[in-house]
Simulated scan of single mutants.
Amino acid sequence: MTGPTGLSARRTAPDLARGLMLVLIAVANAHLYLVDRPIGYRGYPAGLVGGDRVVAVVQMVLVDGRVYPLFAALVGYGLARLADRAPEGVLRRRGVVLIGVGALHGVLLFPGDIIGAYGLVVLLIAPVVATGPAAGPSAGSSRGLLAAAGAIAAFGVLLSTGQGTPQGVPTVPSIGAPTVGAFLAAHPGEWFATTLFSALLTAPAVLVGVVIARSGTLDDPVAHRRRLALWAVGGLAASVMLGLPLALAVVGTWVPAGVAAGLAGAAHTAGGYAGALGLLGVMGLLASVSWPGRDLIAAAGTWSMTLYLSQSVVFVAVFATVAGGLGSSASLTTATVTGLLVWLVGVLVAGLLARAGHRGPAELLVRRATYGHAPS
Protein backbone atom coordinates (compact mmCIF):
# COMPACT_ATOMS: atom_id res chain seq x y z
CA MET A 1 0.00 0.00 0.00
CA THR A 2 1.17 3.53 -0.70
CA GLY A 3 0.19 6.77 0.97
CA PRO A 4 -1.84 9.68 -0.38
CA THR A 5 -1.23 11.00 -3.87
CA GLY A 6 1.16 13.95 -3.87
CA LEU A 7 -0.05 17.28 -5.20
CA SER A 8 2.31 17.14 -8.17
CA ALA A 9 0.92 13.75 -9.25
CA ARG A 10 -2.75 14.76 -9.31
CA ARG A 11 -4.78 14.90 -12.53
CA THR A 12 -6.09 18.28 -13.67
CA ALA A 13 -9.54 17.23 -14.92
CA PRO A 14 -10.92 15.70 -11.69
CA ASP A 15 -9.60 18.59 -9.61
CA LEU A 16 -10.99 21.16 -12.04
CA ALA A 17 -14.34 19.37 -11.87
CA ARG A 18 -14.22 19.54 -8.07
CA GLY A 19 -13.41 23.24 -8.16
CA LEU A 20 -16.24 24.02 -10.58
CA MET A 21 -18.59 21.69 -8.70
CA LEU A 22 -18.22 23.86 -5.62
CA VAL A 23 -19.95 26.81 -7.28
CA LEU A 24 -22.85 24.55 -8.21
CA ILE A 25 -23.09 23.28 -4.63
CA ALA A 26 -23.16 26.86 -3.35
CA VAL A 27 -25.98 27.72 -5.75
CA ALA A 28 -27.87 24.49 -5.03
CA ASN A 29 -27.77 25.00 -1.26
CA ALA A 30 -28.46 28.74 -1.15
CA HIS A 31 -32.24 28.48 -1.50
CA LEU A 32 -32.43 25.96 1.34
CA TYR A 33 -31.57 28.80 3.73
CA LEU A 34 -34.63 30.85 2.73
CA VAL A 35 -37.12 30.25 5.55
CA ASP A 36 -40.01 31.96 7.39
CA ARG A 37 -42.12 32.08 4.22
CA PRO A 38 -44.37 29.69 2.27
CA ILE A 39 -42.32 26.87 0.76
CA GLY A 40 -43.22 25.21 -2.55
CA TYR A 41 -41.58 22.50 -4.61
CA ARG A 42 -38.03 21.23 -3.89
CA GLY A 43 -37.67 23.65 -1.00
CA TYR A 44 -37.95 26.78 -3.15
CA PRO A 45 -40.00 29.69 -1.80
CA ALA A 46 -43.53 29.79 -3.17
CA GLY A 47 -44.76 32.79 -5.14
CA LEU A 48 -41.49 33.67 -6.87
CA VAL A 49 -41.64 36.80 -9.04
CA GLY A 50 -39.46 38.66 -11.54
CA GLY A 51 -35.85 37.61 -11.83
CA ASP A 52 -36.26 35.00 -9.10
CA ARG A 53 -38.42 32.96 -11.47
CA VAL A 54 -35.68 32.93 -14.12
CA VAL A 55 -33.07 31.97 -11.54
CA ALA A 56 -35.27 29.15 -10.25
CA VAL A 57 -35.89 27.66 -13.70
CA VAL A 58 -32.18 27.71 -14.58
CA GLN A 59 -31.30 26.10 -11.27
CA MET A 60 -33.99 23.45 -11.57
CA VAL A 61 -32.93 22.21 -15.01
CA LEU A 62 -29.14 22.50 -14.59
CA VAL A 63 -28.26 22.48 -10.88
CA ASP A 64 -30.98 21.23 -8.53
CA GLY A 65 -30.69 17.47 -8.13
CA ARG A 66 -27.77 17.46 -10.56
CA VAL A 67 -24.85 18.70 -8.50
CA TYR A 68 -24.86 16.05 -5.77
CA PRO A 69 -24.83 13.14 -8.25
CA LEU A 70 -21.91 14.98 -9.89
CA PHE A 71 -20.21 15.22 -6.49
CA ALA A 72 -20.95 11.53 -5.97
CA ALA A 73 -19.38 10.59 -9.32
CA LEU A 74 -16.20 12.40 -8.29
CA VAL A 75 -16.29 10.56 -4.95
CA GLY A 76 -16.50 7.32 -6.93
CA TYR A 77 -13.59 8.43 -9.09
CA GLY A 78 -11.50 9.12 -5.99
CA LEU A 79 -12.52 5.80 -4.44
CA ALA A 80 -11.37 3.91 -7.53
CA ARG A 81 -8.03 5.69 -7.46
CA LEU A 82 -7.69 4.84 -3.76
CA ALA A 83 -8.49 1.21 -4.56
CA ASP A 84 -5.62 1.17 -7.07
CA ARG A 85 -3.09 1.68 -4.29
CA ALA A 86 -4.76 0.56 -1.06
CA PRO A 87 -6.51 -2.58 0.23
CA GLU A 88 -10.20 -2.92 1.04
CA GLY A 89 -9.63 -2.10 4.70
CA VAL A 90 -8.41 1.38 3.82
CA LEU A 91 -11.45 1.93 1.60
CA ARG A 92 -13.75 0.97 4.47
CA ARG A 93 -11.83 3.24 6.82
CA ARG A 94 -12.27 6.11 4.36
CA GLY A 95 -16.03 5.49 4.45
CA VAL A 96 -16.10 5.55 8.25
CA VAL A 97 -14.06 8.76 8.33
CA LEU A 98 -16.42 10.45 5.87
CA ILE A 99 -19.41 9.42 7.98
CA GLY A 100 -17.71 10.99 10.99
CA VAL A 101 -16.95 14.24 9.16
CA GLY A 102 -20.50 14.35 7.82
CA ALA A 103 -21.95 13.77 11.29
CA LEU A 104 -19.95 16.66 12.76
CA HIS A 105 -20.93 18.91 9.86
CA GLY A 106 -24.58 17.90 10.06
CA VAL A 107 -24.97 18.11 13.82
CA LEU A 108 -23.05 21.35 14.32
CA LEU A 109 -23.85 23.33 11.16
CA PHE A 110 -25.91 22.03 8.26
CA PRO A 111 -27.99 18.83 8.56
CA GLY A 112 -28.39 18.84 4.77
CA ASP A 113 -24.80 17.52 4.74
CA ILE A 114 -23.89 15.11 1.93
CA ILE A 115 -20.47 13.88 3.08
CA GLY A 116 -21.96 11.38 5.52
CA ALA A 117 -24.13 9.91 2.77
CA TYR A 118 -21.08 9.41 0.55
CA GLY A 119 -19.25 7.83 3.46
CA LEU A 120 -22.08 5.35 3.95
CA VAL A 121 -22.03 4.44 0.26
CA VAL A 122 -18.24 4.05 0.27
CA LEU A 123 -18.44 1.79 3.32
CA LEU A 124 -21.06 -0.44 1.68
CA ILE A 125 -19.45 -0.76 -1.76
CA ALA A 126 -15.82 -1.06 -0.65
CA PRO A 127 -15.75 -4.87 -1.14
CA VAL A 128 -16.90 -4.65 -4.77
CA VAL A 129 -14.65 -1.71 -5.65
CA ALA A 130 -11.45 -3.12 -4.15
CA THR A 131 -8.93 -4.34 -6.72
CA GLY A 132 -5.71 -6.29 -6.67
CA PRO A 133 -4.88 -9.86 -5.53
CA ALA A 134 -6.35 -9.33 -2.05
CA ALA A 135 -9.72 -8.24 -3.39
CA GLY A 136 -10.82 -11.77 -4.24
CA PRO A 137 -13.92 -12.77 -6.19
CA SER A 138 -16.04 -10.02 -4.64
CA ALA A 139 -14.36 -7.35 -6.75
CA GLY A 140 -16.99 -6.01 -9.14
CA SER A 141 -16.61 -5.70 -12.91
CA SER A 142 -17.44 -2.38 -14.51
CA ARG A 143 -20.43 -3.96 -16.24
CA GLY A 144 -21.69 -5.28 -12.92
CA LEU A 145 -21.24 -1.91 -11.26
CA LEU A 146 -23.24 -0.22 -14.02
CA ALA A 147 -26.02 -2.79 -13.71
CA ALA A 148 -26.19 -2.22 -9.96
CA ALA A 149 -26.19 1.54 -10.50
CA GLY A 150 -29.08 1.26 -12.93
CA ALA A 151 -31.15 -0.86 -10.55
CA ILE A 152 -30.59 1.46 -7.59
CA ALA A 153 -31.26 4.53 -9.74
CA ALA A 154 -34.57 3.05 -10.94
CA PHE A 155 -35.63 2.49 -7.33
CA GLY A 156 -34.57 6.04 -6.40
CA VAL A 157 -36.54 7.49 -9.29
CA LEU A 158 -39.60 5.53 -8.16
CA LEU A 159 -39.27 6.92 -4.64
CA SER A 160 -38.96 10.45 -6.02
CA THR A 161 -42.55 10.60 -7.26
CA GLY A 162 -43.44 12.42 -4.03
CA GLN A 163 -41.24 15.35 -5.04
CA GLY A 164 -43.89 16.42 -7.52
CA THR A 165 -45.93 18.03 -4.74
CA PRO A 166 -45.12 21.17 -2.70
CA GLN A 167 -43.13 20.58 0.47
CA GLY A 168 -44.94 23.13 2.59
CA VAL A 169 -42.01 23.31 5.05
CA PRO A 170 -38.32 24.14 4.52
CA THR A 171 -36.03 21.29 3.53
CA VAL A 172 -33.91 22.11 6.59
CA PRO A 173 -36.41 23.49 9.15
CA SER A 174 -33.73 24.14 11.79
CA ILE A 175 -32.40 27.05 9.71
CA GLY A 176 -35.38 29.01 10.99
CA ALA A 177 -35.05 27.86 14.62
CA PRO A 178 -35.41 30.83 17.02
CA THR A 179 -32.70 29.78 19.48
CA VAL A 180 -29.30 28.14 19.31
CA GLY A 181 -30.60 25.30 21.48
CA ALA A 182 -33.48 24.56 19.11
CA PHE A 183 -31.14 24.97 16.13
CA LEU A 184 -28.77 22.30 17.44
CA ALA A 185 -31.40 20.00 18.92
CA ALA A 186 -33.08 19.50 15.55
CA HIS A 187 -29.89 18.66 13.69
CA PRO A 188 -29.28 14.98 14.61
CA GLY A 189 -32.67 13.82 13.37
CA GLU A 190 -32.54 15.98 10.25
CA TRP A 191 -29.01 14.82 9.42
CA PHE A 192 -29.79 11.13 9.92
CA ALA A 193 -32.86 11.20 7.67
CA THR A 194 -31.06 13.24 5.02
CA THR A 195 -28.05 10.92 5.06
CA LEU A 196 -30.07 7.75 4.48
CA PHE A 197 -32.17 9.22 1.66
CA SER A 198 -29.20 10.94 0.00
CA ALA A 199 -27.13 7.75 0.16
CA LEU A 200 -29.80 5.93 -1.80
CA LEU A 201 -30.13 8.64 -4.46
CA THR A 202 -26.40 9.19 -4.93
CA ALA A 203 -25.13 5.59 -4.72
CA PRO A 204 -25.66 5.04 -8.48
CA ALA A 205 -23.48 8.03 -9.31
CA VAL A 206 -20.71 6.80 -7.00
CA LEU A 207 -20.70 3.47 -8.83
CA VAL A 208 -20.65 5.22 -12.21
CA GLY A 209 -17.77 7.36 -10.98
CA VAL A 210 -15.78 4.20 -10.25
CA VAL A 211 -16.38 3.01 -13.82
CA ILE A 212 -15.41 6.42 -15.21
CA ALA A 213 -12.13 6.25 -13.29
CA ARG A 214 -11.43 2.80 -14.69
CA SER A 215 -12.08 4.07 -18.22
CA GLY A 216 -9.38 6.75 -17.92
CA THR A 217 -11.65 9.38 -19.49
CA LEU A 218 -10.84 12.10 -16.96
CA ASP A 219 -7.20 11.14 -16.76
CA ASP A 220 -6.66 12.15 -20.39
CA PRO A 221 -9.51 14.47 -21.45
CA VAL A 222 -7.72 15.52 -24.64
CA ALA A 223 -7.83 11.96 -25.94
CA HIS A 224 -11.48 11.55 -24.96
CA ARG A 225 -13.01 14.80 -26.20
CA ARG A 226 -15.54 12.99 -28.40
CA ARG A 227 -16.84 10.97 -25.45
CA LEU A 228 -16.90 14.02 -23.19
CA ALA A 229 -18.79 16.01 -25.82
CA LEU A 230 -21.35 13.22 -26.08
CA TRP A 231 -21.82 13.27 -22.31
CA ALA A 232 -22.14 17.05 -22.30
CA VAL A 233 -24.67 17.35 -25.11
CA GLY A 234 -26.74 14.28 -24.33
CA GLY A 235 -26.64 14.66 -20.56
CA LEU A 236 -27.54 18.34 -20.44
CA ALA A 237 -30.27 17.97 -23.06
CA ALA A 238 -31.89 15.20 -21.01
CA SER A 239 -31.38 17.23 -17.84
CA VAL A 240 -33.28 20.21 -19.25
CA MET A 241 -36.11 18.19 -20.77
CA LEU A 242 -36.67 16.04 -17.70
CA GLY A 243 -36.27 18.92 -15.26
CA LEU A 244 -38.48 21.44 -17.05
CA PRO A 245 -41.88 20.12 -15.86
CA LEU A 246 -41.05 20.50 -12.18
CA ALA A 247 -39.18 23.75 -12.90
CA LEU A 248 -42.38 25.23 -14.32
CA ALA A 249 -44.21 24.07 -11.20
CA VAL A 250 -41.64 25.79 -8.99
CA VAL A 251 -42.36 29.16 -10.65
CA GLY A 252 -46.12 28.63 -10.69
CA THR A 253 -46.63 28.18 -14.41
CA TRP A 254 -48.61 25.02 -13.74
CA VAL A 255 -49.74 22.92 -10.77
CA PRO A 256 -49.18 19.21 -11.39
CA ALA A 257 -51.64 16.85 -9.76
CA GLY A 258 -52.16 13.12 -9.52
CA VAL A 259 -50.12 11.02 -11.90
CA ALA A 260 -48.63 14.13 -13.53
CA ALA A 261 -47.18 15.23 -10.19
CA GLY A 262 -45.56 11.84 -9.62
CA LEU A 263 -44.13 11.77 -13.12
CA ALA A 264 -42.72 15.29 -12.74
CA GLY A 265 -40.95 14.33 -9.51
CA ALA A 266 -39.57 11.12 -10.97
CA ALA A 267 -38.46 12.85 -14.17
CA HIS A 268 -36.59 15.49 -12.18
CA THR A 269 -34.56 12.84 -10.35
CA ALA A 270 -33.86 10.92 -13.55
CA GLY A 271 -32.76 14.17 -15.15
CA GLY A 272 -30.42 14.68 -12.22
CA TYR A 273 -28.38 11.62 -13.13
CA ALA A 274 -28.25 12.68 -16.78
CA GLY A 275 -27.39 16.25 -15.84
CA ALA A 276 -24.54 15.12 -13.60
CA LEU A 277 -22.99 13.22 -16.49
CA GLY A 278 -23.54 16.21 -18.77
CA LEU A 279 -21.87 18.59 -16.32
CA LEU A 280 -18.95 16.19 -15.92
CA GLY A 281 -18.60 16.13 -19.70
CA VAL A 282 -18.48 19.94 -19.83
CA MET A 283 -15.88 20.03 -17.06
CA GLY A 284 -13.78 17.41 -18.82
CA LEU A 285 -13.86 19.45 -22.01
CA LEU A 286 -12.84 22.56 -20.07
CA ALA A 287 -9.91 20.61 -18.66
CA SER A 288 -8.77 19.64 -22.17
CA VAL A 289 -7.93 23.24 -23.11
CA SER A 290 -6.07 26.10 -21.46
CA TRP A 291 -7.94 29.20 -20.30
CA PRO A 292 -7.39 31.92 -17.70
CA GLY A 293 -8.19 30.72 -14.20
CA ARG A 294 -8.29 27.03 -15.07
CA ASP A 295 -5.28 26.03 -13.00
CA LEU A 296 -6.34 28.19 -10.05
CA ILE A 297 -9.78 26.55 -9.93
CA ALA A 298 -8.20 23.11 -10.29
CA ALA A 299 -5.87 23.92 -7.40
CA ALA A 300 -8.86 24.98 -5.31
CA GLY A 301 -10.46 21.66 -6.20
CA THR A 302 -7.84 19.92 -4.06
CA TRP A 303 -9.50 21.73 -1.13
CA SER A 304 -13.01 20.67 -2.13
CA MET A 305 -14.07 19.26 1.25
CA THR A 306 -12.67 22.21 3.16
CA LEU A 307 -14.45 24.65 0.86
CA TYR A 308 -17.71 22.68 1.03
CA LEU A 309 -17.63 22.86 4.84
CA SER A 310 -16.67 26.53 4.81
CA GLN A 311 -19.69 27.34 2.65
CA SER A 312 -21.92 26.08 5.45
CA VAL A 313 -20.11 28.27 7.97
CA VAL A 314 -20.79 31.37 5.86
CA PHE A 315 -24.37 30.44 4.95
CA VAL A 316 -25.33 29.76 8.58
CA ALA A 317 -23.67 32.98 9.69
CA VAL A 318 -25.53 35.00 7.05
CA PHE A 319 -28.92 33.30 6.73
CA ALA A 320 -29.78 31.28 9.87
CA THR A 321 -32.30 32.91 12.18
CA VAL A 322 -29.97 32.47 15.18
CA ALA A 323 -27.17 34.30 13.34
CA GLY A 324 -27.44 36.83 10.51
CA GLY A 325 -31.13 36.14 10.01
CA LEU A 326 -31.24 37.07 6.31
CA GLY A 327 -32.94 33.80 5.46
CA SER A 328 -36.28 35.34 6.38
CA SER A 329 -35.98 38.30 4.02
CA ALA A 330 -33.44 37.59 1.24
CA SER A 331 -34.66 36.86 -2.28
CA LEU A 332 -33.64 33.78 -4.25
CA THR A 333 -31.43 35.96 -6.45
CA THR A 334 -29.71 37.48 -3.43
CA ALA A 335 -29.08 34.05 -1.92
CA THR A 336 -27.71 32.77 -5.23
CA VAL A 337 -25.37 35.74 -5.67
CA THR A 338 -24.17 35.21 -2.10
CA GLY A 339 -23.33 31.63 -2.99
CA LEU A 340 -21.40 32.74 -6.07
CA LEU A 341 -19.39 35.24 -4.02
CA VAL A 342 -18.62 32.65 -1.36
CA TRP A 343 -17.33 30.30 -4.05
CA LEU A 344 -15.22 33.01 -5.69
CA VAL A 345 -13.52 33.99 -2.44
CA GLY A 346 -12.95 30.35 -1.60
CA VAL A 347 -11.33 29.67 -4.96
CA LEU A 348 -9.02 32.64 -4.65
CA VAL A 349 -7.88 31.76 -1.13
CA ALA A 350 -7.71 27.99 -1.45
CA GLY A 351 -6.32 28.07 -4.98
CA LEU A 352 -3.41 30.27 -4.00
CA LEU A 353 -2.68 28.23 -0.88
CA ALA A 354 -2.86 24.96 -2.83
CA ARG A 355 -0.51 26.26 -5.49
CA ALA A 356 1.90 27.13 -2.71
CA GLY A 357 1.87 23.48 -1.65
CA HIS A 358 -0.65 23.56 1.21
CA ARG A 359 -3.43 21.01 1.64
CA GLY A 360 -6.87 21.87 3.02
CA PRO A 361 -7.44 21.26 6.75
CA ALA A 362 -10.33 18.86 6.14
CA GLU A 363 -8.33 16.96 3.53
CA LEU A 364 -5.41 16.61 5.94
CA LEU A 365 -7.75 15.32 8.65
CA VAL A 366 -9.34 12.74 6.34
CA ARG A 367 -5.98 11.60 4.99
CA ARG A 368 -4.46 11.23 8.44
CA ALA A 369 -7.50 9.33 9.73
CA THR A 370 -7.54 7.09 6.65
CA TYR A 371 -3.83 6.33 6.33
CA GLY A 372 -2.65 6.77 9.91
CA HIS A 373 0.87 8.12 9.82
CA ALA A 374 1.52 7.58 6.11
CA PRO A 375 3.42 10.52 4.59
CA SER A 376 1.37 13.14 2.75
Rank of each mutant, 00 (worst) to 15 (best):
V121G: 05
R85K: 10
F110C: 01
H105D: 01
Q59M: 15
Y77C: 11
A193S: 13
Y77E: 10
P127W: 05
L201K: 14
G116K: 00
Y118L: 14
A73T: 13
V63L: 12
A86Q: 12
V180I: 15
L201A: 13
V75L: 06
L79R: 03
L145M: 10
L62N: 02
S141F: 02
Q59K: 09
A154D: 01
Q59A: 12
P166V: 08
V101L: 08
E190S: 08
A147L: 13
T161R: 15
V61G: 05
L196P: 04
P204H: 11
G76V: 12
A117P: 04
P69E: 06
G89V: 07
V97G: 01
R85D: 08
L145G: 01
V169D: 12
L74Q: 06
L109P: 00
L145Y: 01
V61S: 04
L145I: 07
V96R: 10
F71A: 09
V128L: 12
G150K: 05
G156A: 07
R92K: 13
G116T: 04
P69Y: 11
S160E: 08
L200D: 03
A203W: 12
A151H: 01
P137F: 06
A103G: 00
L104M: 01
A139R: 15
V67G: 01
R94G: 07
T131H: 11
G76S: 05
V63S: 04
A72D: 07
G162T: 14
V67W: 07
P137R: 15
D84P: 00
L200S: 06
L79N: 02
V67M: 10
A73L: 15
P87F: 09
P87R: 10
L82R: 13
A147Q: 06
A193L: 12
I114K: 10
P69R: 10
G132K: 07
A73I: 11
A134C: 00
V129Q: 00
G140D: 02
F183P: 01
V63K: 09
H105A: 01
T202P: 06
D64W: 06
P69L: 12
I175M: 13
S160H: 13
V96L: 14
L145R: 10
V90T: 15
Y77P: 06
G132R: 07
I125F: 00
G89Q: 05
P137T: 13
Q163A: 15
V90E: 04
L184W: 08
A149F: 03
A130P: 00
S160A: 15
P133M: 04
R66T: 10
P137A: 13
V122S: 03
A153H: 03
T202S: 14
Q59R: 09
R94I: 12
L184S: 07
G106K: 00
V97W: 00
Y68C: 08
A186I: 08
I114T: 15
L108G: 01
M60A: 15
V128Y: 02
A203K: 08
V128P: 04
A147T: 13
L201F: 13
G168C: 05
G65P: 10
A149G: 04
P173V: 09
F110G: 01
G95D: 02
D64R: 11
G116A: 04
S174P: 03
L158D: 00
A135Y: 07
L200G: 09
G162P: 05
T194R: 10
A148T: 11
G189R: 09
L200N: 08
T131L: 09
Y77H: 13
